[in-house]
Amino acid sequence: MADDVISVKDLVKVYDDVRAVDGITFAVEKGEVFAFLGPNGAGKTTTVEIIETIRDATSGEVSILGMDVKKNRTEILKRIGVLPQEFSSFDRLTVEETLKYYAALFCTDCDINKLIDLVNLEEHRKKLYINLSGGLKQRVGIAVSLVNDPEIIFLDEPTTGLDPRARHDVWEVIKGLKKEGKTIFLTTHYMEEAEVLADYIAIISKGKIIAYGTTTELIDKHFKTVKVTIKGGTEGVGSLAEKMGMPTQGRDNGNITIEASGNEQIVEFLNALKANNISYLSMDIRKPNLEELFLVLTGEALIDKRVTQ
């Protein structure tokens, strides 16, 4: 397509015996936020580093802004901005000096003040990098990735290891970039992050893309049902639902989740509850989220809850 700024075809990367990236194909259009969602070790960073020209592919074709990554490295680097995974910078430079240094590497006269403003670091500009919190460091990293006014910005796990507050601050910065019409390639293992920020999502697992589309498309395609959670219901909720042919799950703490095929069935069910004199504290109706989609697609959780958070 004419508007594709990144196009990846049959990309394969083999390390020793492991196929880290196993034949993936996708495209990113100009101006969209594209999220590469997957658990740790799925092949996200390998893929993104191949697109950024800092890693060589085993096979496959990757072109960015219409240029082949193998042949046009120098030109590509001038036009993209990269926040690498676990970004870090020189400990004893201030925020301001860090930005000036990276601007000098690109030999551009970039407006440092505007960047500092964009990532909201005005009050920290004279502080040494080593004295900044994790969230502030990431914002410096994002500002650094913008010194050359890039057409595409790669953000590799921009909020990993941040507390919820800092994560939301980083999201605000990314939303600001989106408003400016930048194309953003985001890799993350946080479902919520992809849902909040992305226009388009590719889910990657064990080196393969297993789902591809907008959040709504993905959910609608894979889940035909709606989830109804009844909290604090009296006896008989579960058996009633089963009698009406609706599968139930998660009967704990008096909560019960029922799968309904659609709104009509929910109304039917509510009427039946009333008719049977069954009362409840609250009810919650929702579509399954990406987390559940991932579980359905791979049989494994997106985030290993014992390890992260």
Partner: peptide
């Protein structure tokens, strides 16, 4: 620290 990786993405 990953600084070399960042530098690799500059000219």
């Amino acid at each position: 620290k990953g600084i070399l990786r960042k530098l690799a993405t500059t000219p």
